[in-house]
Amino acid sequence: MQRRRFILSATGALAAPAIAHSQDVMTSNGTRYRLVTLTRDLEQPWSIAFLPDGRLMITERPGRLRVFANGRLERAPVGGLPRVYARGQGGLLDVCLHPGFAGNRVLYLSYSAEGAGGAATTVARAEYRDGSLRGLARIFEALPRTSGGLHFGSRLAFDRAGLLYVTAGERYQMQRAQDLGDLGGKILRLRDDGSVPPDNPFVGRDGARSEIFTWGHRNPQGLAMHPVTGRMWAVEHGPRGGDELNLLEAGANYGWPRATHGIDYSGAVISPNKSLPGMKDPVRVWVPSISPSGLAFYTGNRFPAWQGSAFTGALSNFALFRIGVDGERWTGEERLLADRLPYIRDVREGPDGLLYIVTHADDGGLYRLEPA
């Protein structure tokens, strides 16, 4: 198939949706499904989130937040967005609703923002009313800032306790991941106002940032809570090989770059160690890389055979991966949509029990998987 231009450096139910076209029927583990195109009018979409009324919010990396409603993409972007550093992998990235959004109308955005010294992964919260953001306030920044446009991480997810998790890449400066005084290469846990929960693992430890929940990460771009256990899971980009699926444990060090299954893009060895004492091993490692992005656990009843599975987009593998998880174990996987869509950036379950995905391209699209 013809590959579209891709800018990634280095490396309510919906009412009467307009269907551009439906591809042929595919089969997964006995489940017949098809891919439906909803729109192809997006520029580098990065994340999707469903509003309580079934409308769908979509971030575009250059700095726009769009709404898909009543079967079409609304022409005017949402107003009141922050200024973003839209270079390389940076820009407007994730969008996440407050657990109490139906009452307070609060949502969260992650993005790269520029300031003294360079750019950093940033999180802001605001109220969404009448097609615009109001009271936008920055609540977190993965300091220190640095130059360059790589490895922002930027996924957002809430747990059952209403605490917000934020993934921050190490900005292509690998040693930052092992520095507890640095917020790069970490997964952070915050209250909904950006303050620090008192039971975070490094609260009160000299030389360590209290926002840190886990450390030793490279560029985690998928984050989701398991619907049964309530545990948080993440997928992260390795270098050349060594992509990871991780089960997050408070205070754990996930090894990068002291332990990795990958090598440098030049072919040079980064570390001779794939595992080290005192460091947490991945649940699953991909060699060669698939470039996992976005993460969702499926709980719906439209695809009964997929219940409990995790899904992640595989940017460099041109596929959607369905991953079997049993408690804390990886039990297998299969490659869906093989070579049908390039650069799947995010995947989410909709309120209708169907799966929705976006593709990160200049002519990026919103798609839906439905039973055939």
Results as ranks from 00 to 15, higher is better:
4 R>P: 06
7 I>K: 12
8 L>G: 14
13 A>Y: 15
15 A>M: 12
18 A>C: 07
19 I>W: 09
19 I>H: 11
21 H>G: 15
23 Q>E: 15
32 R>L: 14
35 L>E: 05
35 L>Q: 08
37 T>R: 09
37 T>H: 14
38 L>I: 06
47 S>H: 05
47 S>G: 11
58 I>D: 04
58 I>M: 10
65 L>W: 12
65 L>S: 06
67 V>Y: 07
69 A>W: 11
74 E>V: 02
77 P>R: 07
81 L>A: 05
81 L>Y: 02
84 V>K: 00
85 Y>M: 08
85 Y>L: 02
86 A>P: 13
87 R>M: 09
88 G>H: 10
93 L>E: 05
95 V>M: 07
97 L>Y: 03
103 G>I: 10
106 V>Y: 14
110 S>D: 08
110 S>W: 09
110 S>G: 10
110 S>M: 03
112 S>P: 01
113 A>K: 02
116 A>P: 11
120 A>L: 08
122 T>D: 04
126 A>H: 11
136 L>I: 11
137 A>C: 10
139 I>N: 03
140 F>P: 02
141 E>M: 02
147 S>N: 13
150 L>A: 10
152 F>K: 03
153 G>D: 01
153 G>Y: 02
153 G>L: 00
153 G>N: 04
154 S>D: 02
154 S>Q: 01
155 R>N: 09
155 R>A: 02
159 D>G: 05
159 D>Y: 10
164 L>E: 06
168 A>F: 04
175 Q>F: 15
180 L>M: 01
181 G>C: 04
182 D>C: 07
182 D>N: 15
183 L>V: 05
183 L>M: 11
183 L>D: 00
186 K>S: 11
196 V>M: 07
197 P>G: 04
198 P>F: 12
198 P>Q: 11
201 P>L: 00
202 F>D: 03
204 G>P: 13
208 A>G: 01
213 F>Q: 00
218 R>N: 05
219 N>Q: 07
220 P>N: 01
229 T>Y: 10
231 R>V: 11
237 H>T: 14
246 N>Y: 08
247 L>D: 08
250 A>S: 13
251 G>V: 05
261 H>Q: 10
262 G>T: 11
263 I>P: 10
264 D>F: 10
266 S>N: 12
267 G>L: 04
268 A>P: 05
269 V>M: 14
270 I>S: 02
275 S>G: 15
275 S>C: 08
278 G>H: 09
288 P>A: 04
288 P>E: 01
289 S>P: 12
290 I>E: 00
291 S>P: 13
291 S>I: 09
293 S>V: 14
313 G>F: 09
313 G>P: 10
317 N>T: 07
317 N>M: 07
320 L>A: 05
323 I>A: 02
330 W>Y: 15
331 T>P: 13
332 G>S: 06
337 L>R: 07
337 L>C: 10
339 D>P: 08
344 I>K: 00
346 D>C: 06
353 G>P: 09
354 L>V: 00
359 T>P: 12
359 T>Q: 00
360 H>C: 01
360 H>Y: 15
362 D>L: 13
363 D>N: 15
364 G>N: 06
364 G>A: 01
364 G>Y: 03
366 L>E: 01
370 E>Q: 12
370 E>M: 13
372 A>Y: 04
